[in-house]
Amino acid sequence: MSDLVSPQGGSMYAHSSQVHRTLLRASPDTPHQARQIVRIWSALDLGLKSDLLEDVLLVVSELVTNSLKHAHFTPGREWVQLSIDTDPACVRVTVTDPGHPTEYPQRRLADSRGLSGLIAGGRGLQIVDHICNGAWDTSLTESHERIVQARIPIDPHT
């Protein structure tokens, strides 16, 4: 994984939360690398059950792909940060990117015309919204970095 910039290991918090974080160089292969890293984290110590792991991988892929589509990458700012935080209730997926100077984060779902095939793409956030039961949001930091956080319930019935 030559595009891996600086992985950081997980740490424990007082409330038994596990946090894993890595910084990836932005490239067309970044979503694949992010999924591979989450699989490794799960095998090492996250221990996500198969169905939950598949949901987490899908959310990771969609959010990282959106970062690649919408971030304004400039020299030295060609990165996407992925963070996974688990606790007894949910798995939190956080994706941070350099943001865009003229594009502000919006909680926007796909255009309904996509159902008829007139628009390619745009379904990713609908999938994220469904998996997370609507528990996702986006914001900007003071330095205009975009943060998207999705909370995937461990018990899908909650």
Rank of each mutant, 00 (worst) to 15 (best):
His20Phe: 12
His20Trp: 12
Arg21Gln: 08
Arg21His: 14
Arg21Pro: 00
Arg21Ala: 00
Thr22His: 01
Thr22Pro: 01
Thr22Val: 15
Leu23Ala: 06
Leu23Trp: 00
Ala26Met: 10
Asp29Phe: 07
Asp29Leu: 14
Thr30Val: 13
Pro31Gln: 10
Pro31Phe: 09
His32Lys: 14
Gln33Cys: 01
Gln33Ala: 12
Gln33Trp: 09
Gln33Ile: 14
Ala34Pro: 04
Ala34Gly: 07
Ala34Asp: 05
Arg35Ala: 14
Arg35His: 02
Arg35Trp: 03
Arg35Phe: 00
Gln36Pro: 00
Gln36Glu: 14
Gln36Ile: 01
Gln36Cys: 04
Ile37Asn: 01
Ile37Gln: 15
Ile37Lys: 11
Val38Thr: 13
Arg39Thr: 00
Arg39Trp: 01
Ile40Tyr: 06
Ile40His: 13
Ser42Phe: 04
Ala43Thr: 10
Ala43Ser: 15
Ala43Phe: 07
Leu44Met: 10
Leu44Pro: 00
Asp45Ile: 01
Leu46Asp: 02
Leu46Trp: 04
Gly47Asp: 12
Gly47His: 13
Gly47Thr: 10
Leu48Val: 03
Lys49His: 11
Asp51His: 11
Asp51Trp: 02
Leu52Met: 11
Leu52Gln: 12
Leu52Thr: 08
Leu53Ile: 02
Leu53Asp: 03
Leu53Lys: 11
Glu54Arg: 13
Asp55His: 13
Val56Lys: 06
Val56Phe: 05
Val56Pro: 03
Leu57Trp: 11
Leu57Ser: 12
Leu58Val: 15
Ser61Phe: 06
Ser61His: 13
Glu62Gly: 10
Glu62Phe: 06
Leu63Trp: 03
Leu63Ser: 02
Val64Thr: 08
Val64Pro: 01
Val64Trp: 03
Val64Gly: 00
Thr65Cys: 03
Thr65Tyr: 11
Thr65Glu: 15
Thr65Pro: 01
Thr65His: 11
Thr65Gln: 13
Asn66Thr: 05
Asn66Met: 08
Ser67Arg: 01
Leu68Trp: 10
Leu68Ala: 09
Lys69Met: 07
Lys69His: 14
His70Asp: 05
His70Lys: 09
